[in-house]
Design a protein around this nucleic acid. Structure first.
Lengths: 353, 353
DNA sequence: AATTGCTGCGTGTACGTACACAACATTCGC
DNA sequence: GCGAATGTTGTGTACGTACACGCAGCAATT
């Protein structure tokens, strides 16, 4: 049966018109009489016409220039992965005329974000990819881009209400909830856990709060009230190593019952260093992200689990979201969460690299 | 700079020959003088020529017929996922002229495998996808296919030494090792664990043995000798429910210290049913695969973790492996293991569906 | 009556590649 | 020396689509 793929030519033949007319109908560019239009559409539906994307991409020979506004991996190695994902997608989409221009900003300076966003906005791009880690600054540009009709995709950090084409990233609350599950499984009777926010720029704080909320809610919803105790601490950026050590020393001295530490960002290696130095073998450690330093302590057995939300995939899928919209005219989903992967020393090899 | 993609035409112009000549050189079909050949190759390299796959796929208008030999999901719902993955890839690759013919065999009857493989072998296919769960029977056909030069891809079960184009699937040993890690984390001081092989056809037994081996090795390598005890049991196919219950009753009566059960295949829901009926709340349960019945007990909290090796992805990537080889002439890697995902109730939503 | 403008539609060409065929040059056999 | 065989290269067409252009036919304007 339907082994034959229908082409514009087939529709034209069956409708008794030329391919040009069919083309005009399918692209809604008018200059076709009502009855012919109806006839062509009907036949197209009957024959189940689907345009040949190859041929289309071949003939619409234009280039799509996409701007990627993302933080500097040199400042925080977490951002290496999304960058790699973007570049992988770029290589694959080169075929279709996609060119990416990267704008790299310093994730610790809002001014750097603004500068790069300004530079970006000067040129007219076909699409924009952005990690909007500075909330206030971002929405200014969202409004500009929206007015000029340029589709933009957010990744890593979600800022709704400004109609981005899509958001790709993580569900912070649920990842905290998942961390709760992991600790609960590791300590099935009772436990005291420390939620640690470490060395973070303030922009990500809403992420971290959601993670902690998820963590706390897990125990509230799944355990009896008094079996588990959850503490929390914050080490602000700029604290030196001695200060950091002292702070943890105090915390553990005051709370000798602590059996697990949940680090809400990619800095769990700092706690791991401490635990190793102090030889605290019994304290479990769960953190985020497959950055080099974390992997070292994961393999050493100091970090038990890392939660990972495929940052490389975030970059990769963001690019494809734009491409699906711009080139392939597919409908894209407004929100795409990537899987919350649970990484251990044992299954790390599948996720890294 | 290099914003211009180089075409055959560009090479031809620069070399002072026609596009036909360049084409002959690039495709090694002779009838070109030595000096012209060298010149063209040199220029192609200089200009960093890469063929336009779209144009190529457009012009080589042939259809690729691929045979998929896989077990019947109706007999074992595990096989639904690979089938879905294959069909998803088929839909995407239809553009490029890929047509898939499925041959569904009964996973409990080697004769059914043979019948379908015979039917398959009668027709000449461009590529073959097979889940070779019957070892002895499979290698007969491997030899036939190899002689006739048809590339074949294995998934789910690896049988080396017969030069398949690639293998896609799981690393059984490591997944057992990973299960060991999970139980160890759940019982950090000591524990008694039961490895249960349930209701399985013999063909998969090598898989199950590797999983158990990995599990045992984990504790040998990571814990002191006497803290952990590992038992094992086997329930053969055909045992009725009462027999199953009785067998577990006896086991738990003889070994009241059992704190965890590791089910080496997708049948962990059977143990879950038992644990629920007997109200054994304290026994942890880890199994495999996101089949419907398992999900029910995962959500109910009876099954703690499921290990999943993306069976849908196995089907999907197998198809793409063949397509990359046949259509896009890419080099494909001989072995592709898919990630060992750790699934809990909390992150299930990202992996299922 | 001649012109312009508009509507409805067909034709032609281009995208980059593959391949059949034609065309030409060279060599060889007799 | 001529025809045939062989070797080397150019030309043309096709794949399916998009779009510029052109051409009729008719109505409205000059």
């Amino acid at each position: 049966m339907e082994k034959t793929i229908t082409r514009i030519k087939d529709i034209a033949q069956k409708a008794g018109v030329s391919t040009g007319t069919v083309d005009r109908v399918l692209h809604n560019r008018g200059r076709v009489s009502e009855d012919v239009q109806q006839r062509v559409l009907k036949i197209a539906k009957e024959l189940n016409y689907e345009p040949n994307l190859l041929a289309r991409a071949l003939v619409t020979n234009r280039t799509y220039t996409i701007a990627a506004l993302l933080p500097d991996p040199a400042a925080d190695s977490y951002w290496q992965a999304p960058k790699t994902g973007i570049e992988k997608a770029e290589a694959e989409l080169k075929q279709y005329g996609v060119v990416v221009k990267q704008f790299i900003f310093n994730p610790f300076q809002a001014s750097s974000f603004r500068e790069n966003a300004d530079r970006l906005t000067k040129t007219k791009f076909d699409g924009i990819l952005v990690a909007p880690i500075f909330y206030r600054e971002s929405i200014t540009y969202f409004n500009i881009w929206k007015r000029s009709g340029v589709p933009f995709v957010l990744f890593n950090t979600h800022i709704p209400d400004y109609e981005p084409l899509m958001y790709i990233g993580q569900d912070s609350y649920l990842s905290g909830y998942l961390a709760g599950k992991i600790f609960h499984f590791g300590h099935q009777e009772s436990g005291t856990f420390l939620v640690a926010h470490i060395d973070e720029n303030m922009q990500d704080s809403s992420h971290l709060i959601k993670k902690e909320q998820g963590f706390v809610d897990y125990f509230q919803q799944n355990t009896s009230a008094d079996a588990y105790q959850i503490l929390h601490t914050q080490v602000s950026r700029g604290t030196d190593k001695e200060g950091f050590t002292a702070q943890l020393d105090n915390l553990l001295a005051d709370n000798p019952s602590i059996t697990g530490i949940f680090v809400t960002n990619s800095k769990s290696y700092m706690v791991a260093e401490y635990l190793q130095a102090r030889n605290h073998r019994k304290i479990n450690l769960v953190g985020y992200d497959l950055v080099e330093k974390n992997l070292h302590f994961l393999n050493a057995g100091i970090i038990n689990f890392l939660i990972n939300q495929n940052p490389k995939g975030q970059g990769y899928h963001s690019m494809y979201g734009l491409a699906d919209h711009l080139i392939f005219k597919k409908k894209v989903e407004a929100i795409k969460y990537l899987p919350l992967d649970i990484i251990t020393k044992e299954n790390l090899q599948y996720y890294y690299g």
